[in-house]
Design a protein around this nucleic acid. Structure first.
Lengths: 214, 214
DNA sequence: AATTACAAAGTGGTCAGACCACTCATAACT
DNA sequence: AGTTATGAGTGGTCTGACCACTTTGTAATT
């Protein structure tokens, strides 16, 4: 029936072209985009159409606009994608569970990757890391982020970042004493490449924080 | 400096009011929203402002618009989280290696999930599955997709789908004879919940296809 | 010469009105 | 009754006009 039901949405096209433009002109985080009027002319569409695309990206937190100044490429930490979806619609239990599961999968994989890599687990970072955990107050989120960063998979990192916002959960809390000792062991396991041990310690940690909260 | 930098964005306000309106009027999935012109009048703003808000929601997949008909509340499952991830975030992290690693992490996690769930690995599906592998030609991609579907994590499934496209890889090929025997063992391991065994067989399979191709 | 004050240009924010393309229900016609 | 034509309603797009704000350049003042 709807064979050629393909009246491509203009503003979606503009979004694509914007991405392309950003890539071509090598606009980096914080950089300035052309003005709405200029974009309209360059892309051969009306200004209102450009605005529809820009507003979409702004709602997502991908760009930032300042009246009188211009439009700027936003920091990736400001992406509001997940946040928005969660407040608007995605509140089903199943979905939240999915997010947790998926995020943990990424975390485990990071641990796995580091354990397998002689280059990574031999880094001098780890001892300093352990000291920091012992001596300072440290947020759960920070330690995991660090691990994923070290695992050197930027894609995973980005996805993890987005998923993290979703739960808004106990990741913001400080490591408690029990957790610290688990993490010390975990990091030691990572250093010596004992994946099995590391993963089971990680699971142990999950149990710990799930028992404490919620 | 920017203490009260709070010149609330109009279209963001409209987004909020729209959500409120949807709640008040009890508009359900698939239901029709008021027309743009009516919304403009009711919310006391210009039509273009209403459109900026609507377009934002549409980009997220929260609503659906059909020319000549109207604007409709979209199905939950059409949200575009992952698609947007691909267009804006994945471009930078295009290291193919990252894509592979992340995708495999999701695959392993699916196997893990199924192994741990007595409900899932007890399904009657598995035997039929094995037969199919033995008797028919089957594409690599199909078997993995099936497993992720069974693991019942929609988010993972979406992300996996996306990554799959980006890889453009050997997943389209048929299972070769050696692979088939590995998979039979793998499925058996899953059935009996032997996670260790299943994962190591999965890794074995990865070696197999990486030796053959590329 | 240095500083200040002011005007102009540039930018995003918003609105109103005008078409267009499309869908659908209904009236008019055969 | 069946078909066709019409018109109202809707989203899609463009144009031009203001407004509020920031930046910048320049002229006036010191």
């Amino acid at each position: 029936m709807n064979s050629t039901n393909n009246p491509k949405k203009m503003f979606v096209e503009i979004v694509k072209q914007l991405r392309q433009l950003i890539a071509e002109e090598n606009i980096t985080v914080g950089g300035k985009l052309p003005s709405e009027r200029e974009l309209a002319e360059r892309l051969q569409v009306g200004r209102s159409t450009v605005r529809e695309a820009l507003r979409s990206l702004e709602l997502l937190g991908l760009i930032e606009t300042r009246r009188g100044e211009g439009t700027f490429l936003s920091d990736y930490r400001k992406h509001r994608l997940v946040e928005l979806l969660s407040t608007f619609i995605l509140t089903e239990a199943q979905s939240k569970e999915d997010v947790h599961t998926t995020r943990q999968a990424l975390e485990k994989d990071a641990i796995h990757t580091i354990c397998m890599s002689e280059r990574l687990n031999a880094l001098h970072i780890w001892d300093a890391f352990k000291e920091k955990i012992i001596e300072e107050e440290i947020i759960r989120e920070d330690i995991i982020r660090e691990i994923i960063i070290i695992s050197d998979n930027r894609l995973s990192l980005k996805i993890w970042f987005l998923l993290k916002q979703f739960a808004g959960e106990p990741y913001q809390e400080n490591l408690k004493l029990e957790e610290k000792s688990v993490w010390i062991l975990l990091l030691t396991a990572i250093q010596s490449g004992e994946e099995q041990q590391a993963i089971s310690l990680y699971n142990e940690w999950l149990l710990l924080i799930n028992r404490g909260d919620v």
